[in-house]
Design a binder for these strands. Structure first.
Lengths: 336, 336
DNA sequence: AAATTGCGCTAAAAGGTTTTATTTACTAAT
DNA sequence: ATTAGTAAATAAAACCTTTTAGCGCAATTT
């Protein structure tokens, strides 16, 4: 690791040209009809001295960096953290690297990050777009740089996308609550136009309609503090005398649980969207709608890699099924 | 964002040389005695056309990438996830970017990642070193590239380091358990030579000695599956009839909690090292030794930046105090 | 009058690759 | 004996910056 050795050093040492070495190193020996003897000689020498090409110079010349930009909402949320980890290792096997950043749902920050990654010439993007990022994504597409969205998308923009079946997930969860005999089932969501929220909301409403039940919906500001969220959740649950709640995200569910502790009211039956370590451990354990994290990560990478290789033209939208993991928090309501 | 504009385009458009533009863009206008009029003219034009230099070319020339490598144990552990997020935003303000990767405590992977980052010419490293990484870190130092370790360090290697006062944290926690009247206090750790584990273990032992109590120690294999960990924890707690346990990491504590649920035994009084969302929510809530995450992140960055600017020579080792957050899991034991 | 200094700017090298276009030295065919 | 063709390798351009060294001129100093 002491002093970097260059391709020209190798050429000099072996008494051949830089070009030849480069061809051999880039697996173009056959194509360029370099003799097998020389190929072997070069390869052996390169291995012996441990030469590693300067990736910067390589990227400058080729225009490819082999780095992908991952723009997610919040790396400290286990849902995103786990996806990030899976993506990271998947991509790693393919010789690509990840640069990631969290936007915390701030459009301006998202725009800045994307610009920064663009300046660094990442080869492609995986983005959980925040509200208002449509233009930026469009610009990327126009610059001909592959983008795959996940978790949510823009209805008016043709993009690759991988996500869970939010409608079905919320629908199943709500149905499950109905079947268990709950009568006053609330839904907690965010003030946001993001598609995944809309879909979950639609799933809840559809199931409520099917079961001929009155619906209760509470939205929380995206930038609300934990305390604000807790207070409004307390009011929502208590004032409406809800006997069950579907939370549209795991952190909303956690705010709800904290609220029940802080304000000392009994949490009714509940289901959270997205699993979390907490939920299995609590007493009672919490029923969740679980997204297929692994499949999401795999498909994101696959689609992005295919794009990078120019192997697909039409945009791909992939919607993967959620799984309802039934735990103790939704046991059947004692019938009167 | 359509077609990249180059510095030469600007020079041509304004009828001046590339050099001049470069000087102005790099704040060397005064130093190089470029006239104010011209400086302004260039700056205005650059802003107008939205020119952004090609960072690759810049890095190739200067040898600086303004990218820092962050090598952590596991991005999906909230302790590391939170540190990563804090580091990310801190560093961002200073014009640096982060590339991160998780090692999952695998030395070989760690070595490979570091090599990869080195090849990409990151300007500096922040590393949670896994066992056996000493040589690699030493090589980096010899290559004159700044490295700051955190969470753990190598006693025989002079390096910058930021971490928590693990000894004191474990000592205080153990003392607290003693004061609450517990008599059979166990300590759960890992088979690992990492310093933070040793220090926590020492803190526990010292406190037990001071209180003239028998100590119980159980170690878990680092690569143990969740089930294996759970089983050995069950045995440890039940067979020794422990009335209190200090867990040396948050995920060990979580395994313990899962075990108590799975094997249906009552979890005795407990304290976990490192906080976790779960712990506040559980019934009873869990007392923790909490590391000063924010201070750790800030100091890591500060030290690394000072190094990068060549402003410090002597190595800095910073040990920050932990805080014992007392919750319900360690209420006083009913005296007989 | 000659030498030095200061000013405002620039040509060209350097950084380390990949890739295009070409050369050289053969062999085979006319 | 010349031409054509091909295998094996290479020189040089290109990628886009930063930075070194220096130019031409006017003003000042010796």
């Amino acid at each position: 690791m002491k002093k970097r050795i260059l391709i020209s050093d190798i050429a000099k040492a072996l008494g051949i040209s830089v070009t030849t070495v480069s061809f051999i190193l880039n697996d173009k020996a056959k194509e360029k009809r370099i003799s097998e003897a020389l190929t072997k000689r070069v390869l052996d020498y390169v291995k012996k001295v441990g030469y590693k090409p300067n990736e910067l110079a390589k990227s400058l010349r080729t225009g490819k960096t082999k780095i992908l930009g991952l723009i997610i909402e919040d790396i400290s949320n286990p849902f995103f953290g786990n996806i990030a980890r899976l993506i990271e290792s998947k991509v790693y096997e393919q010789g690509y690297r990840i640069i990631y950043c969290s936007t915390n749902n701030d459009v301006d920050k998202a725009r800045e990050l994307i610009q920064m990654f663009y300046d660094r010439q990442v080869d492609g993007f995986i983005i959980t777009p925040s509200d208002g990022l449509e233009d930026t994504v469009k610009q990327l597409q126009q610059s001909n740089i592959p983008v795959v969205l996940f978790d949510r998308y823009f209805p008016n923009l043709e993009t690759d996308y991988v996500g869970a079946d939010n409608f079905q997930g919320a629908f199943d969860a709500t149905n499950h609550l109905c079947q268990q005999g709950y009568k006053r089932i609330g839904f907690v969501s965010l003030y946001s136009d993001q598609t995944q929220m809309k879909e979950r909301s639609d799933g809840y409403l559809k199931a409520m309609d099917n079961n001929k039940q009155q619906s209760f919906i509470q939205k929380v500001q995206m930038d609300a503090s934990d305390d604000e969220a807790m207070e409004s959740l307390k009011d929502f649950i208590c004032e409406n005398r809800l006997d069950a709640v579907l939370f549209s995200t795991n952190y909303l569910a956690i705010s709800g649980l904290k609220a029940s502790k802080k304000y000392n009211f009994a949490m009714p039956a509940m289901i959270a969207f997205d699993d979390h370590t907490v939920f299995k451990l609590l007493e009672p354990s919490i029923t969740v709608v679980s997204q297929p994290i692994k499949e999401i990560a795999e498909n994101l990478i696959n689609i992005l890699l295919l794009r990078l290789q120019g192997k697909i033209k039409a945009t791909r939208k992939l919607v993967l099924p959620c799984e309802l993991k039934i735990r103790e928090s939704t046991k059947a309501k004692a019938t009167l």
